[in-house]
Simulated assay, not measured.
Amino acid sequence: MDYEYNGLGQVTDVGGATGYLLAADYNALGQVNQYTLGTSEALTVKKAYITNTYEEGTDRLKRSLTTDATRSVQDLNLTYDKTGDVTSVFDTANLSGTGASDYQCYTYDGYQRLTDAWTPSTASCATSGRTTTNLGGASPYWTTYTYTSSGLRTTETAHTGTGNSTKTYTDQYIRQSETVCFGRLACNHAYSYSLAHPDDVAGAKHIAATYCLSHAAQCQSDARVWERTYQAGDEFVMAVAAGEGFRIGEALTGCSFSPDTPVLMEGGKAKAIGKVKPGDHVEAADQKTAST
């Protein structure tokens, strides 16, 4: 492959045994105005042209028109919302009457995550027309997506005239609306369960939340501070270990400190870390001022 560039380093020609990209024109911002494609520059050789236009003020791609010598092969027209998300892509070329126009629409949630994508039978993305009976185009579809609060996809639902089909996304590390463990043993048991039952997120979360309630003696002797379960957003299951959490996906068999590691408490007395309880006050130093 051979490449040619203009003075600004923009590619203008790509060729090999035959030509591929015969010419390229750019605007002042470096965006492609037009590509000329073909195997040769000879007048008798067929060529294709991709011509782009951009939205004034935002410079977003507004239209991408592909033509040959006689007709429009593809005519993509794009619209956007105020944040720059693509809301529609309409292809109205229809191959000079030999094909069908294709309309695709998209909606998003407040976090700019795609929630619905569908192909209406007409050039309208009104949600009132988002029905299975109003789907059209060369390959009709309507797909809905849901997410956890951190953006992980949880479901993908395909809507058809014969019913809906939903795909659910989970993983062995319990990454759905995760819950803080009741201690290291609870996390270990929840993690082991999730490996053996990767599809049972609820079961693993239940173990993480309840194991130490029914095995209080074991959890206390495990020398770990354990606190009441609470929703922790969408991170891996975390365990509270001497005030510092660790992830269920990491090695959970080791400890940061042995149970008898002394901790300097408020008032100057030492206390084994295994006996530190929530609400206890420990001495801390300010590294900038050296004060405690």
Rank of each mutant, 00 (worst) to 15 (best):
R184N: 14
G268I: 13
T144V: 02
L43W: 12
W226D: 02
K167E: 15
G254A: 08
T98V: 09
G254E: 01
L185N: 12
D2N: 15
S101E: 11
Y54W: 06
N94R: 15
V282H: 02
L152G: 12
E266H: 07
Y173A: 05
R71A: 10
A24T: 15
A232P: 00
N33L: 15
Y80N: 08
A126K: 10
T148S: 07
T87N: 01
V201D: 11
T133C: 02
W226T: 09
L185Q: 11
T98S: 14
T12V: 12
Q287Y: 03
D25A: 14
N134R: 14
A42P: 00
M1D: 05
P140D: 01
S194D: 02
H159I: 05
V263H: 10
A48F: 04
R184F: 03
R113L: 00
L114A: 04
Y26Q: 04
G9F: 11
G161Y: 09
T92Q: 09
T67R: 14
Y111H: 08
S221W: 04
A241I: 11
L65S: 05
H206T: 14
H281E: 07
C125G: 08
G16P: 01
S150N: 14
D234P: 04
D2K: 15
F236I: 06
Q231H: 06
Q112L: 05
A239W: 03
M1P: 05
